[in-house]
Amino acid sequence: MPVVVFHRNGEAYRGEVKENTNLVVRAGIKQFPFPHLRYECGMGKCARCACRVLSGGDQLPPPNWKEKKQLGERLEAGYRLACQLWIEHDIELEQDELPVEA
């Protein structure tokens, strides 16, 4: 099972998830072990779930049109929308303390 390491507010959270897991879906149904994941719409419209990928990004599919629209140049800095990612491999993510504005 994939291991997710999630950094937020100076703390690191680590947990295993089933393959093909969406972190925002799991957080929304309170079945995800990282309580500090910031999210809102879950549909790629608000970018509140934007995270910087620290490792494992090479295993992710290319950004979709929603990520390109919401993140723009931040894609080059390693940001992705957690709501648009289905985790199939180990990944390490960091979410800024303040919301990333589009």
Score class of each variant (00 low, 15 high):
1 M>V: 08
2 P>G: 06
2 P>Q: 07
2 P>V: 04
3 V>F: 02
3 V>T: 15
5 V>Y: 03
7 H>G: 01
8 R>A: 05
8 R>C: 02
8 R>S: 05
9 N>S: 13
10 G>P: 05
12 A>K: 13
13 Y>S: 05
15 G>T: 07
17 V>M: 07
17 V>R: 01
18 K>G: 03
18 K>W: 02
19 E>A: 13
19 E>R: 14
20 N>F: 08
20 N>I: 00
20 N>Q: 09
22 N>Q: 11
24 V>M: 07
24 V>D: 04
25 V>W: 09
25 V>R: 11
26 R>G: 14
26 R>N: 02
29 I>Q: 10
29 I>R: 14
29 I>A: 00
30 K>W: 09
31 Q>C: 06
33 P>I: 06
33 P>A: 12
33 P>S: 12
34 F>I: 02
35 P>Q: 01
35 P>W: 01
35 P>S: 01
35 P>M: 02
36 H>L: 11
36 H>G: 00
37 L>Q: 07
37 L>G: 04
38 R>S: 12
38 R>W: 01
39 Y>L: 11
40 E>T: 03
40 E>Y: 12
40 E>P: 00
41 C>Y: 11
41 C>I: 08
41 C>R: 08
43 M>H: 06
44 G>V: 10
45 K>L: 13
47 A>V: 11
49 C>S: 03
49 C>F: 04
50 A>D: 09
50 A>T: 11
50 A>G: 08
51 C>Q: 04
51 C>N: 05
52 R>E: 14
53 V>F: 12
54 L>C: 00
55 S>V: 05
55 S>E: 15
56 G>F: 11
56 G>I: 06
57 G>I: 03
58 D>R: 12
58 D>V: 08
58 D>N: 11
59 Q>S: 14
59 Q>W: 08
59 Q>N: 14
59 Q>Y: 13
59 Q>R: 14
60 L>M: 14
62 P>D: 14
63 P>V: 08
63 P>S: 07
64 N>I: 08
65 W>G: 00
67 E>P: 07
68 K>C: 09
68 K>E: 15
70 Q>V: 02
70 Q>H: 00
71 L>Q: 01
72 G>V: 09
73 E>F: 12
74 R>D: 05
74 R>C: 05
76 E>V: 03
77 A>R: 14
78 G>D: 06
79 Y>N: 02
80 R>I: 04
81 L>Q: 07
82 A>M: 11
82 A>G: 04
83 C>W: 07
84 Q>I: 06
84 Q>T: 06
86 W>H: 09
86 W>Q: 10
86 W>N: 10
87 I>D: 02
87 I>P: 01
88 E>V: 05
88 E>H: 10
88 E>R: 15
89 H>I: 00
89 H>A: 14
96 D>A: 15
97 E>I: 03
98 L>E: 15
99 P>L: 13
102 A>R: 12
102 A>I: 08
102 A>Q: 10
